[in-house]
Design a protein around this nucleic acid. Structure first.
Lengths: 157, 157
DNA sequence: TATTGTTATACTCTATAACTATA
DNA sequence: TATAGTTATAGAGTATAACAATA
């Protein structure tokens, strides 16, 4: 196993096997939102208004399931459909104020590092963040910022 | 957002939003194994022989579902139940040779870093790995090695 | 004719409750 | 009586196929 593999294997274990998973589960319980709904909400808050189809490609599920997902969010008053001004087939999904608030709350929770991160010094954390930024910048699917600055799609599928 | 949050938020994005997810999906398609089965297989190869109940606690699902999971693995000749020598209620699940082979193959795939890791220099990758090791060592749920060296459970839940 | 979204439906994943065997 | 595992069943989560409206 090369160094890159070793490094990534650690990364993966920390995220998918560590304390983080429990936190996701707890988040689901507290918000009463399924993983799919949480993902949808977060992506919506990153893109600030995308069509049903874009969303389907974006989070990698079938369009018919987006209908169900958005129905669900709409029933909870977290999102709503708006007509596209130029193509009447298209519906744009936008977050309500409450949806945006909840999405931000969720993202905050997701960003809280596991307690074990406490062993790193500030300088090590900076190092880590900079390394991660370099990797993210090199991944076209990730390099769009999480702030609502516009598009950022897998799209080319 | 502090530096720790920034660092972890990047980590999380790389693993859960990047190329890695597609790879997991592709793995599922190729092996015809559901995420639950893959997780079970990998955990089994890490512990080399645990009871149904331990497994349920270990991967965090209901015991009844472990029955279904192991039934499925057994049908595919990837695992089998063996009687516990001291408690006749207990069944020990062990991988077959083919199961072990497949589990190793899966772990190898999971460890392949995304292409974007290529932007890191060797020294940066070493830095990254060492930082991750430090974090893992501080997380009691993670600090058991993935090699088949015995137990390693969440257990205290 | 092709595309966006929806509906109806079915299949997969997972949990709850009741049960059997053993302790 | 309590615990390990199983069975039967029900509920989420998600996809496929057929459809309506618009392009």
């Amino acid at each position: 196993m090369g160094i890159a593999e070793e490094a990534f294997e650690r990364l993966r274990r920390i995220v998918v096997e560590g304390e983080f998973l429990e936190r996701m589960a707890a988040l689901g319980v507290r918000t009463q939102l399924s993983p799919g709904l949480i993902k949808t909400l977060v992506r919506l808050s990153q893109s600030g208004g995308i069509s049903m189809g874009e969303m389907a490609r974006n989070i990698g599920v079938d369009p018919s399931y987006i209908t169900a997902l958005v129905d669900d969010l709409a029933e909870r008053d977290l999102a709503r459909r708006e007509p596209d001004p130029v193509d009447r087939r298209v519906k744009i999904v936008v977050l309500t104020d409450e949806g945006r608030r909840l999405a931000e709350e969720i993202q905050a929770v997701l960003s809280v590092p596991p307690a074990s991160f406490g062993v790193l010094t500030r300088s090590e954390m900076r190092q880590l963040r900079d390394l991660m930024d370099k990797v993210i910048a090199a991944d076209p699917a990730l390099s769009g910022p999480p702030s609502p600055s516009g598009r950022k799609l897998v799209d080319s599928g």
